[in-house]
Amino acid sequence: MVCIGSLRALVLRAAAAAGGRCRWPRVLCGGRGAVDACVTPRASVRHGWRGLRAATGARMMLDSSSSSSDSAASDPSAAGQVQPQRRALAAVAHAHDGGAGGYASGGWAREDGKLKCGYSSFRGKRATMEDFYDVKLTEIDGQAVSLFGVFDGHGGSRAAEYLKENLFENLMKHPEFLTDTKLAISETYQKTDADFLESESNAFRDDGSTASTAVLVGGHLYVANVGDSRAVISKAGKAMALSEDHKPNRSDERKRIENAGGVVIWAGTWRVGGVLAMSRAFGNRLLKPFVVAEPEIQEEPVNGDLECLVLASDGLWDVVENEEAVSLAKTEDLPESAARKLTEIAYSRGSADNITCIVVQFHHDKTG
């Protein structure tokens, strides 16, 4: 058991590097999401968006990450036995100029019309952008695969950026990705966290990030969550949260933290060690093993009852209810329009955080 005095000394040393949802002054490091395969950035700025150019009507694998794995995707042997064979899946992409104010949005549709997705990401009232997102529509060994993720950084943008660049790439390389997707997600989350901590071992910072992801494999939707970003679906006309925010005052989370030798302290809100207002996150080395990156995973069948999915950072959920979010996501013709409206609503209601939202619509009646 770690005594409160020694833990307090530990977290005081973390204070200089901790931020976002932490109590002490934040280390201001800019961050941004980027679109690469079908949407190409013209220029970028550290704290926002300078502009995006769309390859409108382009039909190719959609990948919103800049990745060095493209050669491995075209040549599976280059990555060894664990690399599934990936090939392009037709999609249409478009995006809009983000402008200097830290705003960007875009959308894609599967060629068969059965799935449409859109995103909106806004720096909002924060001085820096620490939200990232990732969208991938592809095919692995003949199986259609779609991956969506929202990553909300705190104490800096590096952890969220690392997840955007690596989490889904690592997941698709997992040897059990198609056969035991839940296991693959759980192991990949924790391995990616360990890899990130190793990559930052010599850095004088200790930032972290949430991860709320949705993976469509065949007829199944897998939603995994670490932190307080959230995934909500509309199923048979009703809003249903597929993730529960990881807060230190959740009875099961508090018990886990205390069993590991940590403490949960009230400091304006409930915080791990008086520092971090969430109980699970990537990164945050100085709060391990109390703050973990083990995901909670929910599985849903993709059938006629599943209407839409909303993934968003807490900049949205702080001021928008689950029911309102999915209701708007269903009624808008384009998911991009829904995502844009949701970010605008959150901002107008006084959200003080970065706001990032991904909307996915399912159209089961399409015949291709």
Score class of each variant (00 low, 15 high):
residue 189 Y to R: 03
residue 361 Q to V: 05
residue 135 V to L: 04
residue 326 V to T: 09
residue 129 M to F: 05
residue 277 A to M: 08
residue 294 E to S: 15
residue 194 A to R: 13
residue 154 H to W: 08
residue 66 S to T: 05
residue 132 F to A: 10
residue 55 A to I: 00
residue 21 R to W: 12
residue 74 S to E: 13
residue 366 K to Y: 12
residue 177 F to T: 02
residue 70 D to N: 13
residue 345 I to E: 11
residue 308 C to T: 08
residue 151 F to L: 05
residue 366 K to L: 03
residue 87 R to W: 13
residue 232 V to D: 01
residue 192 T to C: 00
residue 139 E to L: 05
residue 182 K to N: 11
residue 356 T to A: 07
residue 211 A to S: 07
residue 21 R to H: 09
residue 51 G to D: 06
residue 336 E to N: 09
residue 92 V to Q: 12
residue 136 K to L: 05
residue 201 S to N: 13
residue 138 T to L: 11
residue 204 F to E: 12
residue 199 S to A: 15
residue 179 T to I: 12
residue 277 A to G: 13
residue 358 I to S: 02
residue 231 A to H: 01
residue 304 G to T: 15
residue 368 G to T: 01
residue 224 A to E: 08
residue 278 M to S: 04
residue 299 E to V: 15
residue 280 R to P: 07
residue 216 L to N: 05
residue 158 R to W: 09
residue 235 K to P: 00
residue 164 K to P: 05
residue 52 L to H: 06
residue 7 L to Y: 14
residue 365 D to I: 10
residue 54 A to I: 02
residue 97 D to E: 12
residue 42 R to C: 05
residue 27 V to C: 14
residue 296 E to P: 00
residue 174 H to P: 10
residue 223 V to F: 01
residue 216 L to Q: 10
residue 222 Y to I: 10
residue 93 A to K: 04
residue 76 P to F: 09
residue 228 D to A: 04
residue 330 K to V: 01
residue 63 D to S: 11
residue 360 V to N: 07
residue 18 A to R: 12
residue 120 S to A: 13
residue 367 T to W: 10
residue 275 V to P: 02
residue 222 Y to H: 14
residue 110 R to A: 10
residue 364 H to Y: 07
residue 276 L to S: 07
residue 179 T to M: 11
residue 262 G to H: 04
residue 94 H to A: 10
residue 83 Q to Y: 06
residue 314 D to M: 04
residue 54 A to K: 00
residue 118 G to W: 02
residue 360 V to Y: 01
residue 205 R to D: 13
residue 300 E to A: 15
residue 285 R to Q: 13
residue 302 V to I: 14
residue 94 H to W: 12
residue 8 R to N: 12
residue 261 G to Y: 02
residue 159 A to C: 15
residue 332 E to V: 00
residue 108 W to C: 04
residue 324 E to P: 06
residue 355 I to E: 04
residue 149 G to S: 08
residue 331 T to N: 15
residue 324 E to Q: 13
residue 29 C to R: 15
residue 25 P to W: 06
residue 75 D to R: 15
residue 317 W to I: 09
residue 218 G to D: 04
residue 63 D to H: 12
residue 341 K to R: 15
residue 54 A to H: 07
residue 356 T to G: 02
residue 191 K to V: 06
residue 181 T to R: 09
residue 331 T to W: 07
residue 276 L to T: 07
residue 188 T to Y: 03
residue 196 F to C: 08
residue 172 M to L: 15
residue 66 S to M: 09
residue 59 R to I: 07
residue 193 D to F: 02
residue 34 A to M: 09
residue 228 D to P: 09
residue 307 E to P: 05
residue 114 K to D: 00
residue 151 F to T: 03
residue 137 L to A: 06
residue 182 K to L: 11
residue 117 C to E: 06
residue 135 V to A: 03
residue 192 T to N: 04
residue 95 A to Q: 00
residue 220 H to I: 00
residue 333 D to C: 09
residue 332 E to P: 00
residue 228 D to L: 07
residue 127 A to I: 08
residue 350 G to L: 05
residue 188 T to I: 00
residue 80 G to A: 08
residue 45 V to M: 14
residue 218 G to Q: 03
residue 326 V to R: 00
residue 298 Q to L: 11
